[in-house]
Write a protein that binds this DNA or RNA. Sequence first.
DNA 1: CCGATGCAAGAGCGGTGCTCTCGTTTGGGG
DNA 2: CCCCAAACGAGAGCACCGCTCTTGCATCGG
Lengths: 237, 237
Amino acid sequence: MSTAQGARARARIEVTAAIKDEARRQLAVEGAAKLSLRAVARELGMASSALYRYFRSRDELLTALIIDAYDSLGEAAEASYAAVGGESPAGQWVAVCEGVREWALARPHEYALIYGSPVPGYTAPDTTVPAASRVGRLLIRIVRDAYQAKGEAQWKVPAELRPEARRMAEELAPDLPPETVVVLAGAWAQLFGLVNFEVFGQFHRVVEDREAFFRHAAGQLAHHVGLVYPQSEAAAR
Amino acid sequence: MSTAQGARARARIEVTAAIKDEARRQLAVEGAAKLSLRAVARELGMASSALYRYFRSRDELLTALIIDAYDSLGEAAEASYAAVGGESPAGQWVAVCEGVREWALARPHEYALIYGSPVPGYTAPDTTVPAASRVGRLLIRIVRDAYQAKGEAQWKVPAELRPEARRMAEELAPDLPPETVVVLAGAWAQLFGLVNFEVFGQFHRVVEDREAFFRHAAGQLAHHVGLVYPQSEAAAR
DNA sequence: CCGATGCAAGAGCGGTGCTCTCGTTTGGGG
DNA sequence: CCCCAAACGAGAGCACCGCTCTTGCATCGG
């Protein structure tokens, strides 16, 4: 068993976790650019050189934090999804969007790590891919479940995009119409555009009631991907 | 006249420009995080300390580059707008979106400077506001011109958002219906969500034919803000 | 013409990432 | 059970960083 490892391996895991925790702490205070290996080591009471036994470089530490951040965000999104349970697909969609937003607002620096400018010179290893796609997969699932019930494509895609749409559908969601997959990918990017602008302060002096604004925008995105827009539901009664 | 200043002032302007140029050059190669004042000075054949006569700190240099980047992007967007001339509002919208995208893809590091994670600890001075809002103002203009011709609101905004919608409309575009202003602000953020994902590599292994994808998404955004979607125009004939 | 001002250079401070070396600890196979 | 290789921590050191302070020099205005 992996838990029955020797004391050495156990200590290694603990120290690694301690380093990441302290790094995350500094990240939350100063941001990624000012994350200093020496400061982490100092805070942990060890020599800076000892740290290199656990992470080959600063970038490797950052990579570990990036993966953790993706996973944390994915968990938050999935928790929001689970929390609304049997609500309408649009309600699920909006809940997931709000979960993402709240996670991002609570840890802006970790968010910046994964959805801000990439670390210069550094390209994300494929290790990050599964963690990075959790939110996207969740959004796909919501739409797919909605289509399972009553489903037909309702968008037209221009001819020039049709082969790409087919390819995307095949790779990402074989049981959804290609047009929907294209629209979904767009909505996915647009969701993070909204979150980005809010977290990075681009809405300064533009949008003030950001919570209501976001809820509305997320609802419109839901409508856009073919889910019934909650407001229009309510207005119909 | 300001142009008839002494040789001293003239030299100052030239050196300042040279510093910014060299900094931009390094930016394009290494990214903002690795921009080094010492390296800039070295390349310019001057002592690093001399550089502080022109920029009080590294952050101030970055701020200057940020303003320039905003202006450069604004100019690119306006050029795209001017280039399509009398086309339909939706055509103008898509052209501006594509102008933004192309500018961003051509200078990813400058784009990251303004739409990526903000520089840590640094908050953009209000100096940047006018330059930063150029693209937004251009999008507003396109929609306003379209409404000038035949205009009525076509979105409903939930009650909780109505006061904010009124406030936004009053401040940003008094001659547009509040609902439209809200949708427009969302589309603005979403546009940069699309560009962000492409420039920062989030579409890796998801979207391959990014040009066609973007054109389609931009067209849908145009449709979303109430402009006639070009494809549906063509399909209607 | 001379004094005030702008400017460049150098030295230096405290910090960084990272490497290399050198003792020490420790765990598993003979 | 014991011993050796592997893992580990610490320290010194390299090259670089942003930034400051002081010192001379050039230049401009009265």
